[in-house]
């Protein structure tokens, strides 16, 4: 599902990732953790091709991402569900439109996209805010809309960048339970987080990024 070979990423002279080799098999639940600036978000951005590696290979869902052309990028991104740290909601679209909009790229009819978006919002407890604009939502609500958008088309691989960062403990637990359910149904989930309590709560593979490399790879706690 994910294969990284000798992956390096530098920003000018600052080396963020140094020679990472990694395999994530289909159906795995993986936590990516480490101190701030360790390169968690950078690694995720490399997976959904928002960045190009300085060196090395990135394979996601059978596609070699680091050499993917612009024309092929949408195909990769439609095969992923990405939950962004800063939500990345479309400000001029309502909550419902933010989700139907993405579902339309997957070839759903307007009616079916609307139906599925509504069901996903209901699952996230946000169906009553379907006509609201993102700017009128709280941080937690925006986070849940972003999650709903990523899950609505049932992707095989979910990449989440600090998905619980804006949620209270109860909502965070609910979200993790939801991600576990999706993982149980066969999807691969990669969550970047610095929240140690999440690692302890879910028995999953944990990758600790340290000094640009993988310092620990196994079940938490070590």
């Amino acid at each position: 599902m994910i294969r990284l070979k000798n992956l390096h990423k530098s920003y000018n002279s600052r080396r963020v990732l140094r020679g990472i080799d990694l395999n994530v098999e289909p159906g795995e639940f993986v936590f990516l953790t480490g101190p701030s600036g360790a390169g968690k978000s950078t690694l995720l951005r490399l997976l959904y091709a928002a960045e190009r590696p300085t060196e090395g290979e990135v394979w996601v869902n059978g596609l070699r991402v680091d050499t993917l052309s612009h024309r092929e990028l949408p195909r990769l991104r439609r095969s992923l569900g990405v939950i962004f740290q800063d939500f990345k909601l479309l400000p001029r679209k309502t909550v419902l439109e933010n989700i139907t909009f993405v579902l339309r790229f997957h070839g759903l009819s307007p009616k079916e996209a609307h139906r599925r978006a509504y069901l996903t919002l209901k699952r996230m407890g946000l169906h009553h805010r379907q006509s609201a604009y993102p700017a009128t939502l709280s941080g937690g609500e925006q986070q849940r809309v972003a999650i709903a958008r990523a899950l609505a088309y049932q992707p095989r691989l979910i990449l989440a960048d600090e998905p619980t960062g804006n949620l209270d403990a109860e909502l965070a637990a609910e979200l993790m339970s939801l991600l576990c359910d999706i993982n149980y149904q066969g999807a691969t989930v990669v969550v970047a987080t610095h929240d140690q309590s999440l690692l302890a709560a879910i028995p999953a593979r944990v990758l600790v990024l340290e000094r640009g490399g993988i310092g620990y790879d196994g079940i938490w706690p070590p």
């Binding site: 928002a50 612009h70 024309r71 949408p74 991104r77 990345k88 479309l90 001029r92 993405v102 790229f105």
Partner: peptide
Amino acid sequence: ADEIAIMRLVGATEPA
């Protein structure tokens, strides 16, 4: 510009 960037990130094709 921001919306276009988001659209690209969530898999929108160039014609869309």
